[in-house]
Design a protein around this nucleic acid. Structure first.
Length: 785
DNA sequence: GAGTTTGAAACT
DNA sequence: CAGTTTCAAACTC
């Protein structure tokens, strides 16, 4: 080893690695020396990822670690099986620390952006295990390059394939045959160029890798935002991770689907290497998610979590490959494969074999076309993934701008259009298609086709739609003095960082879809008035448009207004704020018990919760969740809705009204921010069994903020209003600490709430609430003990 | 296409 | 945190 402090530090950490301890065979592996200096992957998880990245934007990073790349449990099981893989695997993670650029990037970029930077850096993730890694690392810190080289070598080195086949029961001829077949399908020139590129040696590879890294950084800008703009950010991160990994590895002219599929290359590689059934379901999921996200833009939030457990053995992959590889390859050769609709085919789980075959082909291709300069690899995002119409010498088939255009267009182009491209047989056709789209982009106003017209903002503020959407401006943009371009990536990152410093969720999707299963046992979709079950994150503030025009962000997003909105005279056809409130009240009236069990949190449920006489949160609602009566229209309707409540609610209309007449300034929780404040603490503080007493509080906390956007770390300002403030006000620093989404932090929040809530005065005149408060006091005592 | 309206973002 | 200003999209003509 190089003996650097960094390495020593890693070595110290590695000394306690249970995985390593459980694998004495490691000592015999070609990486034995290196392994002694490895950092267990969980170190990466907790230190680098959680603290620096997750807390700011991604509230639920663990999903990312369901990947075989980074799942500690899997890793451990893997390690028990294969020391070589262990070596490669661990080496991979160690590389993360050894990448000199990594720390810098992590610190410089925004949290959201860093996620991808972190995950996508090929050198950080791309590892298949090879003895060459040792030498590569010793050779220097240019890990990107060297690991890349190593990977190239590893794919040709026998141990891995042999192991692959031995463990997964895949006959060697099958692999070879498939590989050979694939190679034959590739353009001869490509092969030659690849060979040439590989023969150019380390300098070339280094050059490529550096460039690759440089490009990646600005790509992460888009990637990060794309990921951000999804409730599946984590999942996409995973996709991005693997996708970029494969980009480095293959750097060949693979198509979008190929890239997507190959985004699971490492997963599959590891799976196969470990003799674990290939989790093609993840591939499928990734593909599907990518497609979806590319189609619905930032609002994508499929309810499908990462599918796991649908293992598909590599043998099945091989079988399916033999059937479909020709088609896939032919399409790949023309760069027409990975159109969204085509990928949508992969959305079908029934086509899992098909996906698998694609994936597998990607693996092979990646192995055989590594080291190809990919300077123009403007791979967009995990969502967009890559449109890799590259020549093997690194020059894209399409002009850079066209490439970008395609990438963006692909993001939003309807399936029909992509069908056209799918039928295309030549890159030129794609180029034409791209230009065609470019010409009519004026009609394409979708999430992925932002075209700004900024004049003064330099496209570095949220005024700029491109910037806000997380994409670089295009040449087609009509902006002036634009800095939102790859060449100003540093400036862009700085701007983003600055904005995120003000509002960590600034780049989060404005409209979020709720995931039914995101909060098990307590979620329900029924009280959403819009078909999409989505809501604007913060709610609109329309005064004159009545939420009937696209000035209204809710209307623009085709979502109904909610309690988070502060609009006046809301007439949003997708659902007015008052309707939303009314529905909630109605629901509460009709199915109070059911609601208690299933209610979904959210701040726009203030009314319902306010009217919950059984909830100890009632007073809290009155204090903190008041919707100002600035909206005469909605307030009237709400009043009507409220009046329809049964007396059983034991809350008078007058009380409700007077409560809402309080100055808006008192309502810390009245807006979209509010649920962020409450969510985790409340949620964590109560098991399902406790919902019956304060189910409404769930509403308040979760309604308009998806899991992804909840920020337990934000201090519950509501407690400021608590008469027992001394007990509950956490310092800001604590809140910052809690940004780390560690369960520990959540537990702290839980305790905090449990202590705080009983301290509220009996704002409800009803004994029920008092009784519950007493119960809570008892609970508090337990907690304090 | 120019001018106006609108509301979000940014600023104070 | 509220009020104001700036900004660019949406809208109107």
């Amino acid at each position: 080893m190089d003996g650097s402090p960094e390495t020593n530090r890693v070595a110290a950490a590695a000394a306690s690695s249970p995985a390593q301890a459980s694998s004495p065979a490691v000592q015999e592996s070609p990486f034995s020396n290196f392994l002694s200096n490895l950092t267990p992957i969980n170190t990466v998880k907790s230190d680098s990822y959680s603290q620096r990245l997750v807390g700011t934007f991604f509230p639920t990073p663990p999903v990312v670690f369901t990947s075989p790349h980074i799942d500690l449990e899997r890793e451990t099981s893997f390690l028990e099986r294969n020391d070589i893989v262990e070596a490669g695997y661990k080496e991979c993670n160690t590389t993360i620390f050894q990448n000199p650029s990594f720390e810098k990037e992590v610190q410089l970029c925004s949290a959201s952006g860093c996620i991808d930077e972190y995950l996508a850096d090929p050198a950080k993730v791309d590892c298949t295990g090879s003895a060459d890694i040792q030498s590569s690392i010793n050779a220097g810190k240019e890990s990107n390059t060297e690991v890349h080289e190593v990977i190239d070598g590893s794919t040709k080195s026998e141990p891995l394939p042999t192991l692959n086949q031995a463990e997964v029961g895949l006959p060697l001829p099958s692999l070879t045959q498939i590989e050979t077949t694939i190679i034959e399908k590739i353009d001869k020139n490509s092969v030659d160029l690849v060979t040439r590129a590989q023969s150019r040696g380390q300098n070339t590879a280094k050059e490529v890798s550096q460039h690759h890294r440089g490009i990646r950084r600005h790509l992460q800008f888009e990637t990060a935002v794309a990921q951000k703009s999804s409730n599946f950010g984590n999942h996409r991160s995973l996709c991005s991770l693997t996708h970029d990994t494969d980009n480095l590895r293959s750097q060949s002219k693979l198509t979008n689907l190929k890239t997507l599929a190959s985004s699971h290359l490492d997963s599959k590689a590891f799976s196969s290497l470990q003799g674990v059934s290939c989790d093609t379901s993840q591939l499928s999921s990734c593909l599907c998610e990518s497609v979806r996200s590319s189609q619905i833009g930032g609002n994508s939030s499929t309810s499908a979590p990462i599918r796991s457990g649908i293992g598909l053995h590599l043998n099945s992959i091989t079988r399916s490959t033999s059937m479909s590889s020709d088609v896939l390859l032919s399409r790949k050769a023309t760069g027409c494969l990975s159109t969204p609709d085509q990928m949508l085919e992969h959305d079908n789980r029934n086509n899992i074999e098909h996906e698998s075959s694609s994936s597998f082909i990607s693996v092979v291709l990646g192995q055989n076309y590594s080291s190809v300069g990919n300077d123009q690899q403007e791979s967009q995002t995990a969502a967009h993934t890559t449109f890799t119409f590259y020549s093997t010498d690194g020059v894209p088939y399409l002009p850079c701008d066209s490439m970008h255009q395609i990438l963006v267009d692909q993001h939003s182009v309807p399936c029909e259009e992509m069908n056209a491209s799918q039928d295309a047989n030549k890159i030129e056709e794609l180029n034409e298609l791209s230009q065609k789209r470019k010409r009519r982009r004026g009609a394409e106003i979708s999430e992925g086709c932002k075209r700004c017209n900024c004049k003064k903002s330099k496209c570095l503020k949220l005024y700029c739609e491109c910037f806000a959407a997380g994409v670089f401006c295009l040449d087609s943009c009509a902006c002036e003095n634009c800095y939102n371009k790859p060449e100003f990536e540093d400036t862009v990152f700085d701007a983003r960082q600055q904005i995120e410093s003000r509002n960590p969720l600034a780049f989060a999707p404005k409209v979020v879809k709720h995931e039914i299963n995101s909060l098990p046992n307590i979620m329900e979709e029924a009280d959403w008035t819009t078909p999409s079950s989505a809501r604007h994150k913060r709610g609109c503030n329309c005064k004159k448009s009545k939420c009937l025009k696209k000035y209204c962000e809710c209307f623009q997003a085709n979502v109904g207004c909610s309690g988070a909105c502060r609009c006046d005279c809301c007439q949003n056809p997708c659902g007015t704020k008052a309707d939303h409130e009314y529905n909630r009240a109605e629901k509460w009236e009709t199915h109070p018990a059911e609601k208690l069990d299933t209610i979904k949190g959210g701040n726009d449920c203030i009314k319902a919760s306010d009217m919950d006489p059984y909830s100890p949160w009632e007073g809290l609602s009155v204090i903190s969740n008041l919707t100002p009566l600035s909206n005469p229209c909605s307030s009237t309707r709400v009043s009507s809705a409220s009046s329809s409540m049964r007396n059983r609610t034991k809350i008078s209309q007058a009380q409700l009204q007077s409560s809402r007449l309080q100055p808006s300034g008192t309502g810390h929780l009245k807006r979209g921010r509010s649920p962020v404040i409450f969510t985790p603490q409340v949620f964590e503080s109560k098991g399902p069994s406790q919902l019956s007493s304060d189910g409404a509080s769930y509403e308040r906390m979760d309604d308009d903020i998806p899991e992804l956007l909840k920020e337990p770390s934000i201090p519950p300002k509501v407690v400021k209003g608590s008469p027992n403030q001394k007990r509950v006000s956490p310092p800001q620093s604590r809140a910052e600490k809690l940004r780390s989404r560690s369960p520990k932090g959540l537990r702290s929040g839980r305790k905090f709430i449990l202590q705080a809530m009983p301290s509220f005065p009996p704002l409800s005149p009803y004994s029920d609430s008092k009784a519950i408060n007493d119960t809570r006091n008892d609970h508090k005592g337990t907690q304090n003990n």
